[in-house]
Design a protein around this nucleic acid. Structure first.
Length: 136
DNA sequence: GCCAACGTTGGC
DNA sequence: GCCAACGTTGGC
């Protein structure tokens, strides 16, 4: 099982919206790098959901419930894809960007290094670390 | 094919 | 509100 992190603006689509729906299409990604990561997601992979903007913290856990398929919202060229996500649980304690940056073992994750990327892989160690930090 | 101008994202 | 990072567009 792989781990991923996806970003969303809570004003537009929050983790709570995903919880309410029970399962939803994660679409609208229009960045090649992000798209390539979406395509590599497998059924059952772990997905951390991060709120950008004012909140700036990892708020919840979800899993991939359907692998990449053509993004139904895409009108333009580019073979854009979407996946389906199913919420698992909100994190007991959200993990803030600040806390992540203060953690040396997480200093090289893409969330920190490439702040504009909206879909990114997390290696096993980073995923476990974030989980651990959410259970304090 | 290069590069300047511009737009967007997201942290501060 | 500002700015850095990055992507895209258009002139040459």
């Amino acid at each position: 099982m792989k781990s991923w992190l996806v970003k969303t603006e809570p004003e537009t689509y929050a983790f709570e919206d995903l919880v309410q729906k029970g399962e939803d299409v994660w679409d609208g990604v229009r960045n090649f790098q992000a798209r390539n990561f979406l395509e590599k997601m497998n059924l059952g992979d772990q997905v951390f959901v991060y709120h950008s903007g004012k909140q700036r913290e990892v708020v919840g856990l979800a899993e991939v419930s359907e692998e990449a398929f053509p993004d139904p919202t895409a009108k333009e060229d580019g073979n854009w894809v979407a996946v389906k996500l199913k919420p698992l649980e909100p994190l007991p304690t959200p993990v803030s960007l600040k806390a992540i940056k203060a953690e040396p073992s997480l200093s090289d994750i893409l969330l920190v290094k490439q702040s504009r990327l909206s879909v990114m892989p997390l290696d096993k160690k980073a995923a476990e670390k974030i989980l651990k930090m959410s259970r304090v």
